[in-house]
Simulated assay, not measured.
Amino acid sequence: MSLFDVNDIVLALHQARDEWRDSQRRSREPGSREFPSRDALAGIVESLKGALFPMRLGPPDLRHESEDFYVGHTLHSALQSLLVQSRLELRYNARHNPRDAEAIDAEGDAAVRAFAAALPGIRRLLDGDVLAAFQGDPAARSVDEVLLCYPGILAMVHHRLAHQLYGLGLPLLARIVAEIAHGQTGIDIHPGAKIDAGFFIDHGTGVVIGETAVIGKRVRIYQAVTLGAKRFPTDGEGKLQKGLPRHPVVEDDVVIYAGATILGRVTLGKGATIGGNVWITDDVPPGASVTQASLQNAPQHRAA
């Protein structure tokens, strides 16, 4: 005799799902999956990482002479899977605004073709990120160690892929890719954030970079840094206004040390250094050095 009355639980869960679907105006009609799969995206990203860095993130038995064959085979499979997921997202987006199925599929095809064409550029950006980490960390013994071991690089691999998807009109896929890295590294980068070349996150745990943040070249940040929003404007009905620029702009060659919190659409000028555990809500001039002591003596950089 079973300890559990599974049939009653199955029925109760069915009723709970129906209540949710009714409240969200979801269809109860029989059919295939309605929206993208996190597990499928995880597999796609793993394949893409192998295709981008075959001899380091690819299969352990791969040899140089079969590198191109592996990359071609892996890319074909990953992109076909990505095409399925892109169509699911676009159909999901059109559920309250019906569109022609062929037009949706054509949009998904175009997005994945553009994503595939961007992969060599993404590889070059990531090479720059890896080199910045190697040059910026005296503990790094090789660029290979950086790629294989550094959580900041893993987060940036995901971000470079996710940002491309985000820009191609696939924000849900992008967010899933970003959140997989967030769960693995503790580094939370919204896929909408614009990050230029040579970016290095050292250690990384607890880093938060918001959707509308803009980061220049050769920027280095440490663990527990937040590039966040100061406030969340609402419309006349009290609903949050989405998409407004609300996160910091970090210009080239800025260093931000551990625990710093920078909030709002402020600008950290080129070459500025932001000390640890400071709270900044105003612009910082190029080349400035901001510490807790300087905050106490400079009202233009308020400490909360």
Rank of each mutant, 00 (worst) to 15 (best):
V207G: 11
P54T: 01
D100H: 08
P285V: 06
D8W: 08
G50W: 07
K49Y: 11
I153S: 04
D144R: 06
L268T: 04
F232S: 00
N297C: 08
D5R: 03
L82V: 00
L295N: 07
G276T: 14
R123F: 03
S27V: 14
T74Q: 07
G271A: 10
Q184A: 15
K270F: 01
D22P: 04
A116M: 05
A213G: 06
H301N: 11
D202W: 13
L88T: 09
L131M: 04
P54L: 02
S23L: 14
Q241G: 00
D137F: 07
A178N: 05
T291G: 12
H182I: 13
A106R: 01
L147P: 10
S86W: 03
E179W: 06
K230I: 11
H203N: 11
G228D: 06
P36Q: 08
R220A: 06
E211T: 02
R265C: 05
E211F: 01
L263V: 07
F69P: 00
G269V: 09
V207N: 12
G269L: 09
V266L: 08
E107D: 10
V45D: 10
V255E: 06
V278R: 02
V284Q: 02
R33N: 13
A258G: 12
P191I: 07
L13I: 13
H73E: 11
V177F: 02
V249S: 12
D282V: 09
H301T: 14
T205V: 14
N97S: 10
G136F: 01
A111Y: 04
A78D: 07
I280V: 15
G243Q: 03
V84E: 15
N93I: 12
A224P: 05
A197H: 13
D127Q: 02
V250E: 03
D253F: 03
D196S: 13
A40G: 04
R123Q: 03
Q292L: 15
P138R: 14
